[in-house]
């Protein structure tokens, strides 16, 4: 049998101040999953190696970790797809989380954001008013199926670059799960839910698609865009920078065909928000010192009226 060497991040918050690494060799076939290789290491070599797992089949969402620097489910990753030429697989705890013991991390920030959603149905009427479960048209359920596949593994949260610099951002999974309730026809808290998730920085998603590596193909990014559209449609918290930004971009494209940078900055931060403008001013001054400040007025593109026709036909909001 082939030998796999696991290069494991070791740390115990109860006793250690700095982490170290252990190399543990196990005799398992190369097609073994990283999780089963870890199980073998724990059973045969060192019983103190700690990691989370339950289902071993990509259902429970417990075993996400960094495998050769790539975040994913250990039970879904065969060693031979990641090991180097010497059969070494390095495993580390998920980034964006505080390590607790070895590959186990403190999940609290992730669960906090999930709990804040009130992740249960809040219908208008009581369950007891119904003789049987509420019936939902299959068409209405279709769009919820994909997000309902989320197993809360936090892979997306660990990959999100915004979470890494600002832990107050709800993160991809929580916003995708908010969508699951916002678009549920049985739920009666749509407005409150959109406001809550807007408050948890819905608009801070940078569109980077790092969360597109969700092991359950939930595509959190696309659901985030759906929630933003719902916020605009229902006109929830429209005075925040996110919605203002989106609408002023639309406005400048409609007027000139182009995204007009100067107008977008003023429209987003607020034309009369002097403190806000001063805060974004340093970059402006730096640009100005190189003679490359974007123009204040822009010549519209040729045939700009065609953009108006498109916007009208699609009823694109500009304010």
């Amino acid at each position: 049998m082939a030998q796999i060497t696991l290069d494991i991040f070791r740390f115990d918050e109860a006793t250690d101040t700095v982490p170290h690494r252990d190399k543990v060799a196990v005799n398992v076939p190369p097609t073994t999953t990283v999780l089963d290789a870890l199980e073998a290491a724990k059973a045969e070599v060192d019983g103190s190696i700690s990691f989370r797992r339950s289902c071993r089949s990509a259902i429970c969402g417990s075993c996400s970790m960094n495998i050769n620097g790539v975040t994913g489910l250990a039970c879904k990753t065969p060693c031979n797809t990641v090991m180097d030429e010497n059969g070494v697989v390095s495993v580390d705890p998920m980034p964006n989380f505080q390590p607790m013991k070895d590959l186990v991390v403190h999940m609290d920030p992730f669960w906090d954001k999930y709990t804040r959603l009130k992740p249960y149905l809040q219908p208008k009427d009581k369950d007891s008013d119904h003789e049987r479960e509420r019936r939902v048209d299959p068409e209405d359920m279709k769009k919820l199926v994909q997000v309902a596949n989320c197993v809360m593994c936090a892979t997306c949260y660990a990959l999100c670059p915004v979470v890494s610099v600002d832990p107050s951002f709800a993160g991809p999974a929580a916003i995708a799960y908010a969508y699951r309730f916002i678009e549920d026809v049985r739920d009666d808290q749509r407005g409150e839910r959109i406001a809550q998730i807007s408050d948890d920085y819905l608009w801070l998603c940078a569109h980077c698609y790092a969360c597109s590596y969700c092991p359950k193909h939930v595509d959190p990014h696309d659901r985030i865009v759906d929630v933003k559209r719902a916020a605009i449609k229902d006109r929830v918290m429209m005075n925040e920078r996110g919605p203002r930004h989106a609408l002023v971009v639309n406005k400048t494209i409609r007027q000139t065909g182009m995204l007009q940078e100067t107008e977008v900055i003023q429209g987003t931060v607020g034309r009369f928000n002097i403190t806000g403008l001063i805060k974004v001013a340093p970059l402006g001054l730096r640009l100005a010192s190189r003679g490359k400040l974007p123009p204040i007025f822009m010549k519209p593109i040729p045939k700009v009226d065609e953009i108006g026709i498109i916007f009208d036909a699609l009823e694109v909001p500009v304010s």
């Binding site: 639309n250 065909g257 498109i310």
Partner: peptide, 22 residues
């Protein structure tokens, strides 16, 4: 020269069709 903005990830936030048609 008569092309418009591509939509820059922002227009999608308000309307699902506009970037495609632009």
């Amino acid at each position: 020269t008569a092309a418009s903005c591509c939509g820059a990830s922002v227009v999608n936030d308000t309307n699902r069709d506009v970037a495609r048609v632009l």
